[in-house]
Simulated assay, not measured.
Amino acid sequence: MELVCPAGTPASLRAAVEAGADVVYCGFRDATNARNFPGLNFSRTELAESVTFAHKHGVHVYLACNTYPKAGSEDIWHKAVDDAVAIGVDAVILADIGLLRYARDKHPDARLHLSVQASASNEEAIRFYHREFGVRRVVLPRVLSLEEIRMLNRRIGVETEVFAFGGMCVMAEGRCSLSSYATGESPNMNGVCSPASYVHYEERGDTTVSRLGDFTINIYGSDEKVGYPTLCKGRFSAMGKAGYLFEEPTSLDVTAILPELADAGVTALKIEGRQRGKAYISQVVGAFRASLDRIASGQNGQAGIRGNLTSLSEGQTDTTGAYRRSWQ
């Protein structure tokens, strides 16, 4: 399976390449990508230099242009597609139907991938994107089980890419408006989910309160680890009890089920984390490279790997999420 790794900066891209990535994905420094954070992403010159570096080492580069164009400002997104193709990226990752049509018509030879932001999670939707726009690969939302992925791969004739490590979004990507409701900014339109400028913490006696804008997301006891206040990971009160939707805040880690994902027909494994530093990128990519190489040689892919990754996980815990759907 192809190892697709994140890069928020040229330094992180080099770290991913040197750690064993097959592909590095990144975005331009503007609202056209869903990780539009200050200090991250690439200028046109930086992307061109990074593509040259990656190709020299046999590594592909994908450009994420996966937010939804704003009415009257479509030229920004069109230019991102045009520039990415001119620079020579190996695929452009898109979500918006109009932008997919533009890319197909303007650059018929470009390889197009469907972003998870499009939230295509069934056979009919994926076939539509393949038929109408020539999409070659779909990044599947983090809500499908292993058996559902296996069934899709038997029927669709399109490559599938699944998330392997990092943030565990429990919503259907591309349809979440919670962040926009609370802060006025969302990943779909602005490239930011729960932006840091709206985050603050308050000490109340023996508890810590995490807030996003005007909303309390969680209240932690003195014996609990304090997490980042993402709306869908907040603790909810219902029928006199407080709890999380599915699991306590945790990180996705599929090292335990890599052979099962391969058997289900998955083409590529996507590591999440373009906002992470190069040390994190080196450690995670290196661990997955070693694990995949061990499996390819007939060994146990988990040996010595999971402990290293758990230390990088939210709450120092991990989950296989919907793949095994232990919370259903």
Rank of each mutant, 00 (worst) to 15 (best):
V81A: 07
V138Q: 10
R175H: 14
E161L: 09
P259N: 02
G166V: 02
S12C: 12
A120N: 10
I76E: 10
E123K: 15
R104F: 07
S313N: 10
E247L: 08
E203T: 12
R101W: 06
Y25K: 02
P259G: 06
C5T: 15
R154C: 04
G277Q: 06
A268P: 05
R127S: 00
R276T: 00
L269R: 01
W327L: 12
G240P: 01
Y68E: 05
S197F: 13
K79P: 01
P187W: 00
G301K: 04
R44Y: 09
R35W: 05
R175I: 06
G20R: 01
A118Q: 05
G240L: 05
S311G: 15
R14N: 02
L312C: 10
K70W: 06
S197D: 13
F215M: 14
N308R: 14
E260H: 14
F288S: 09
L252N: 09
A242R: 15
F133V: 13
L178W: 08
P38S: 08
A80K: 02
K233H: 10
R235F: 02
T310L: 09
A48S: 14
P10V: 13
A21F: 05
S43W: 02
M171Y: 03
D293Q: 15
H55G: 13
R104S: 08
S291A: 15
Y68Q: 02
H78N: 14
N218Q: 08
E272I: 03
R175P: 00
V51Y: 04
E147M: 11
S121E: 07
E272D: 08
R131Q: 10
E224T: 03
T320E: 06
T317S: 15
K79S: 15
M239Q: 07
A118K: 01
G277P: 00
T319A: 10
T67A: 11
P38H: 04
L252D: 11
D263G: 06
K70S: 13
C232F: 09
A7W: 00
C169H: 00
L100K: 06
H57G: 05
D105K: 11
A120I: 13
G98Y: 07
V89W: 00
K233E: 10
G20C: 08
G134N: 02
L99K: 03
N300T: 15
A7F: 05
G301C: 14
K225N: 13
Q283C: 08
Y220L: 06
V51C: 03
G307Y: 05
L47S: 00
V59T: 13
L146N: 07
K225V: 11
Y201Q: 10
G58Q: 09
R306H: 03
T207M: 13
T45Q: 12
G227T: 10
L231T: 07
P249E: 05
E248V: 05
A54N: 01
M168D: 05
K233N: 14
R274V: 01
S197A: 12
V226Q: 02
E203I: 14
R306M: 10
R276F: 00
H107R: 11
V24W: 00
